[in-house]
Design a protein around this nucleic acid. Structure first.
Lengths: 249, 249
DNA sequence: CGACTGGTTGAGTGGTCTCAAGTCCTGTGG
DNA sequence: CCACAGGACTTGAGACCACTCAACCAGTCG
C-alpha cells in the first residue's frame, strides 16, 4: 500500500514537475533563464502545460495572442500561409524555444500559424503575466531582446538566400541546418532527428514538393544523402555545406 | 526642379538648426520618443551629427558596431552582399529611423552594410551610452522591442514573398510600399520621393537589373506607371496593389 | 480489401537569368 | 556653352531552372 502510494506520488510529481520551470532542463537557454526561483514560483499559477498531438494547431494566423507558448518537449513548426494556400515554414521550435512572442509584444494578431510536428508538450503563460514580467524584470526583457535579434538576423539572412540562391543550394542549406539543430550522430553520418515530410522540407526551403523530391533524389545519387527508412542521413555534412555555399559560418 | 532644390535647401537648414534631438521633429516616432528632455541633454555629449554624401558608406558588413546610427535627414539603404557579389537591400531608412541596432544589441558584427542614397545627416551615439540607456530606461528598451518586432514581421513577410511570388508581383509590391513610405502626391498620381536606380529597385525586389527594367517597362505600357524624368509616378496605386496581390492589408 | 497519405518520376511550359548589343542621360572639364 | 566619357537604362536572343500537371508506386489504416 505504502509503496503503491509512493509510486502514485512519484507519477504525479513527474507530471507536475515537468510543468514547473524550476527543474526544466532547458531553463538556462530559454527566455526564462534569467528568472530566479521565486519569480518562477510566482509565475506558476498563471502557467499551464498543454499537450498537442501531431498536426494539432497551437494557434492560427489571424488569431489574437492570449499568451506566450514555450515548448517543453517535442517539435513545432511556425508557418505562414500565402494567398494561394501555399505554406512557408518560418522556423522550427524545439524544447526551450518560445513561440508567438512577436505578435504578443507587438500587440498584433499572429501572422503565422503554429503546428505540432509530433506529440508535444507546450507551456502556456497568460498574456497578463508575461507583460507583467516584461515590466518588472529588466533581465527578462533583455533576454527577449536577444531572442528577437537572433530571429531577425536569421530572417534577413534567409530572405537573401531566397532571393539569390537556387533551390538546390537552399535545400542543401536547409538539410545542413536541420542536422546542426536536430541531428543525432549515427554510424556513417548524422541523422535528422526530426520528422518532416517532403512537403515540409519544401516549405522550409521555399519551393514545391516535386522540386524538393528531385533535389533530394539527386543528392542521394551523388552520395550526399542516404535514406534510412523515413528519415535522412547526411554522410558528410561538410560536403553538403559546400553545395549550399554557406556564406556565414 | 527649382522647387525641388528649394525644398532640399529648407530641409538642410532645418536639420542644421537642431543637431540636438529635443526639437527633432522625428523624435516622437523615433527610438528616443520615450526620453524626456533631461535624458536627451545627458545624451548630447555622446552624440555626433555626421554628414554623408550619396554613395557614402555608414558602415560595412563585417564591421564591429561602435554605436547606434539614427537618420536625421536623407535616405539610407541597408543591404547584404551575397557570395557572388550580388546585393540584396534589406530595408530603407528615412528620417527618424535607427540603423545598425540589431548588431549592436546582439553584440555581433554587422551582417549588412549601410549606404546613403542621397546627401544625408545621420546622428551617431556611441555604444556605451546606448547600452547605458538600455540599462536605465525601461521605456527605451520597450520602444526598441517594438522596433525589432516590426522589423521581424516585415522580414518574415518578405521572406515568404520571395519564396512564393513571381518577380512582377514583387516589383509591384515594392513600388506600392515605396509610394506609401516616400510618396508625394502630384497631379495625376503619387510620385516616388526617393531616388533609386533600376539596379536598386531590382535589389529591393530581389531580382536582376534587366528583369526589373522589363517589369517596369511592361507596367508603363499597361499605364500602371509613368516616368517623369528620373522618377516614377503611380497613377493608380490601388491597381498596382492588385497586381501585387498584397495579402496583408 | 479499398481509401488514403506520402513519395517518386516524366513531360511540357513559362518565367528568370545571362550575355550582348545598343541608346539615353548627366555630370564634368574644357 | 559644348563635347565627351561614363554611368544608367533599354531591348533582344537564348538557355536553363523551377513550376505545373499527371501518372504511378509503396506503405498504412480502417
Amino acid at each position: 500500500m505504502a509503496l503503491d502510494g509512493l509510486f502514485h506520488q512519484m507519477e504525479k510529481m513527474k507530471s507536475r514537475d515537468n510543468p514547473s520551470c524550476e527543474n526544466c532542463r532547458h531553463r538556462g537557454k530559454s527566455l526564462f533563464g534569467t528568472l530566479c526561483s521565486d519569480d518562477l514560483a510566482q509565475l506558476k499559477p498563471h502557467k499551464k502545460l498543454r499537450q498537442y498531438r501531431r498536426r494539432e494547431l497551437l494557434f492560427a494566423q489571424g488569431n489574437v495572442p492570449e499568451g506566450l507558448f514555450c515548448v517543453a518537449a517535442g517539435q513545432v513548426k511556425i508557418f505562414q500561409t500565402g494567398i494561394d494556400g501555399r505554406d512557408q515554414i518560418v522556423r522550427l521550435a524545439g524544447p526551450g524555444d518560445p513561440i508567438g512572442y512577436r505578435a504578443l509584444f507587438a500587440d498584433e494578431a499572429y501572422n503565422a500559424s503554429a503546428e505540432a510536428l509530433e506529440e508535444s508538450e507546450v507551456c502556456f503563460i497568460d498574456r497578463a503575466s508575461v507583460l507583467e514580467l516584461l515590466e518588472d524584470k529588466p533581465l527578462f526583457m533583455r533576454r527577449l531582446l536577444q531572442w528577437l535579434c537572433q530571429d531577425l538576423r536569421q530572417a534577413e539572412e534567409r530572405m537573401r538566400q531566397f532571393a539569390q540562391k537556387p533551390v538546390r543550394e537552399r535545400m542543401a542549406e536547409t538539410l545542413v541546418l536541420l542536422a546542426q539543430a536536430f541531428g543525432k550522430k549515427v554510424p556513417g553520418g548524422i541523422q535528422l532527428g526530426i520528422r518532416l515530410t517532403r512537403q515540409e522540407l519544401a516549405e522550409l526551403a521555399g519551393t514545391v514538393l516535386e522540386t524538393a523530391v528531385r533535389c533530394i533524389s539527386e543528392m542521394k545519387r551523388e552520395k550526399l544523402l542516404r535514406g534510412e527508412g523515413r528519415s535522412l542521413i547526411l554522410p558528410d555534412p561538410a560536403a553538403l555545406a559546400r553545395v549550399a555555399r554557406l556564406d556565414l559560418p
